[in-house]
């Protein structure tokens, strides 16, 4: 196995058997198979166990604040639309703390890959309910079990007319790889919600539970261009549908941003024309 994108000089903090390892491996393989230059890729993450993934990858990285990966990723694309930007984090990070940013990122259609490790529990803070926790799931805080309706990121993204929506289970390695690759190749915002068991703090949603409660959509039976059937599939639970729910090509945030002129390769390379500033100043200030 070639691990060109794997970083070996950092100390991994995940528990043995954590589903995150599987996702990390899949990612390194996908990046290698896509034949991208590591200097051109930026991983942006927030805080959480999943948000540590960029530390273990040999790429550019901005590990910011809990819930705030998406706005940073958006900003990076504003400054340099040619970078490949990935926002990665867990369900608490992306759907809980960063929920508002999630809604806006989908609507903006920023050309990024949005990877959410969904283990239905808070790992870093040791086992409280997450937005995707199933009802009746008991924790030290939710002592009588979770009472909130679980957040459905797939249906939410579809309702906002997301341009690429998918769900995977990391145990289905090739399936997940295929979806991830499609997400990277997609022009526009791409959400991949990846099921991933937490072996330490979630005794309910185990490897076995995910296997039993999910199924892969048959590509011949599901039309990924049909948003209505995508929404029907997204409503299904126990088992949860896996695969690409929906995909469409539409104008991206960056294309809108620079629609009336040629997009600068990077804001870094351009300077404002001083003579133009002078001209505008005179236009504004001479009464």
């Amino acid at each position: 196995m070639n691990k060109e994108f794997m970083r070996h000089d950092t100390d991994n903090a995940w528990c043995p058997g954590c589903g995150n390892f599987g996702i990390l491996n899949i990612l390194t393989e996908v990046l290698q198979e896509l034949e991208v230059k590591k200097q051109d890729i930026v991983f942006v993450s927030g805080i959480g166990q999943a948000a540590k993934t960029p530390h273990y990858l040999d790429v550019n990285m901005f590990n910011g604040l809990h819930g705030r990966a998406l706005p940073v990723a958006t900003g990076i694309k504003m400054a340099n639309p040619e970078l490949i930007v990935v926002a990665e984090g867990g369900d608490g990070d992306m759907y809980g703390e960063g929920g508002n940013h999630f809604l806006s990122a989908v609507r903006r259609n920023v050309n990024i890959v949005h990877i959410v490790h969904n283990n239905m529990v808070y790992g870093l803070t040791k086992g409280q309910a997450s937005p995707t926790s199933q009802r009746e799931f008991k924790t030290k805080v939710q002592v009588n079990g979770v009472s909130n309706e679980p957040f459905n990121p797939i249906l939410t993204a579809l309702s906002l007319n997301a341009s690429f929506v998918a769900r995977a289970y990391m145990q289905n390695k090739e399936h997940t790889k295929g979806i991830l690759k499609a997400a990277f190749l997609h022009k526009g915002y791409a959400l991949i919600d990846i099921f991933q068991p937490c072996v330490t703090f979630n005794s309910l949603n185990t490897y076995e539970w995910f296997s039993q409660n999910s199924y892969m959509m048959d590509e011949n039976e599901h039309d990924i261009l049909d948003i209505s059937s995508a929404m029907d599939r997204a409503r299904e639970t126990h088992p949860f549908a896996l695969g690409i729910f929906y995909k469409q090509e539409r104008k991206t945030f960056e294309e809108y941003l620079w629609s009336d002129k040629k997009s600068p390769k990077s804001l870094h390379v351009k300077k404002h024309d001083i003579k133009e500033i002078q001209k505008q100043f005179d236009r504004y200030t001479i009464y």
């Binding site: 910011g64 604040l65 940073v72 900003g75 400054a79 990077s266």
Partner: peptide, 11 residues
């Protein structure tokens, strides 16, 4: 945070 992304990206 967007602005921080912009600075990080070179803007």
């Amino acid at each position: 945070n967007m602005a921080l992304g912009v600075w990080y990206g070179g803007g």
